[in-house]
Amino acid sequence: MVNTLAPERAEHPASRARPAGPGLAARARRRQTVVAYLFLAPTLLFFAVFLVLPLGFALLLSMSRWAGFDLGDIRPVGLDNFTGLFARGSTFLTPILANTVLFALGTVAVALAGSVLVATCIDRLRFQGLWRTLYFLPMVTTVVAVGNVWKYMYEPGGLVDGVLNALGLASVAFLQDPHTALPAVVVVQAWASAGSAILVLTAGLKSIPRSYYEAAELDGAGAVTVFRKITLPLLRPSLLFVCITQFLTGLQSFALITVMTKGGPGDATAVAALEMYRQAFSYGDWGTASAAAFVLFVVVLVITLVQLWVLRRKGEDA
């Protein structure tokens, strides 16, 4: 699929062979242009209204003060919103931006470790389709269901609590304790996103030539050696792909946190996208909200570019 990315420039062989005169060909070409723009009209119109216009609007707002009512009340304030975000006493850098990165990092680490282990194991089993389907179930479930079911499981008298007590351990108020709230939410996000990681890694595993394993087996290599010397290096493109996409999702997502903790207790689970949402729709500070959105965008962009750079340096092409 990758090599078809570049738009094809080659002429249609049939049109080259057609004996018609240049006038006819030009007319056919003009007709194709008209039809093409007709077909693309809804798409282009949509992007103009819902992509280009919003980007300009967000940029304007990020440098204005506005309470969100009359468009005539937008006051330009230069970069005040941005300096305000990073001012002393602002909660944006810590804990909010730090929480965002920790949330994404934790999710990627847990989901990646779990899915690599499970994907390699599934590859050796029967009923592979069944296992993959089970792991994929959370992906087709609404975040409201996932968040509430887990929230309830973390509550006293819930399943997690029940398991702890059955093991003779004391109860932990996971979502109420500022020290455990963020890890508890990270576990749920990782649980929910492991399925798609497993799918991508399985596709990667299937593309490793089996002769490599057979050769290793003839040499008497153990399972751990085979995993470290063959599976892991050859899986790197899929691993990095999962890493980048999950990091992107982790840095941006706040639906699960909205459902489970609303950012609390205190600011223990407040993340940047949630803060942006709150600034605009709860506090009516649309300028700060838009500025926060752009800062988060830059953070996402930088982290993604760094990962791509590492990927290039390792000599992989993905």
Binding site: E11, T33, L40, T43, L55, A280, F297
Partner: peptide, 29 residues
């Protein structure tokens, strides 16, 4: 499947739209 001026440009635009994070658009939308 159609040949017309601006096709490459529009295709790049479509690819670019996939890179923007959704939260950037909540407020303006």
């Amino acid at each position: 499947k159609l040949r017309f001026r601006g096709r490459d440009l529009i295709f790049r635009l479509v690819l670019t739209t996939m890179m923007f994070p959704p939260f950037l658009f909540f407020i303006p939308h």
